[in-house]
Design a protein around this nucleic acid. Structure first.
Lengths: 134, 134
DNA sequence: CTATAACTTAGAGTGTACTCTAAGTCAAGC
DNA sequence: GCTTGACTTAGAGTACACTCTAAGTTATAG
């Protein structure tokens, strides 16, 4: 478990930029990571990576930076905040379900429109090459 | 079909601001709407409303303004652009499916975390009120 | 006639989340 | 011993989609 990663390596594994990792740390979304004694460069542990992966889930589902910071702050306050952390996630989950619902409804409207265009093209084709005359 | 709406009414029906409607027209996402002869105020027809509703679907599913403009431009060029319009929508549809997929995967990770917190709380509760002693 | 309220415009401002720049430090290779 | 490249920082810049402001016009109500 001594496989610390440089910021480059961590960024590559996570699919984000090194800028973004420093930004997240600066904003308090991740506790200050370990530093190399000689150079002061950041060193990412596998637990840092685990948290950052979950952070990516929260971001990709639209949780704002501020709320993720709130969650991270609760985490650093220890076990007594477990239920508040759960409540935060459950609130986010509800919003996510609502947004999935809206996306699916919009998808239906888009599919409907696509089907409409497809139909128009079929009609057009049948005028050029009428099947009735065979 | 002579039930033209003022910008206020149209905005209320669509759930957007009057600012946004003017912004969309200015950006070319909607053809210039009819104006009142006396005052020059905008008047929205039901077909304007129909397009704006579809536009909302596209926006809410993350289609960029630029691409919606492209679609609107094609629309105003007439029927010869039907297949290109369909292609645009199909491309957007693919992206949307991919993003739905990612959202669902993130949802799973969040659900997993919530279940974990729930379990911790149960353990905690069972220490306070041990069921074994009944 | 005049005050109010709704509209008009061009263009500036806002919020969010990065993304980049500039200036500097440090360790290893030639 | 000096260059290269990766790192550090604070803070400026960017992209996107609105959102608002200021100054002006017009139509109805009193």
């Amino acid at each position: 478990m001594d496989d610390r990663l440089t910021i480059q390596e961590a960024a590559a594994q996570l699919g984000v930029s090194t800028h973004t990792l420093r930004y997240y740390e600066h904003e308090g979304l991740i506790q200050p990571v370990e530093r190399s004694e000689s150079s002061g460069h950041r060193l990412y542990s596998s637990s840092d990576l685990g948290w950052l992966k979950f952070l990516k889930c929260l971001r990709s589902t639209g949780m704002p930076i501020r709320e993720i910071k709130r969650y991270a702050d609760l985490y650093s306050q220890g076990e007594s905040t477990n239920s508040e952390r759960r409540a935060l996630l459950e609130m986010h989950r509800e919003r996510l379900l609502a947004s999935l619902d809206e996306l699916n409804r919009s998808l239906e409207a888009i599919d409907y429109k696509i089907a409409y265009y497809r139909q128009l093209e079929e009609e057009h084709t049948s005028v050029l090459q009428p099947a009735e005359h065979e």
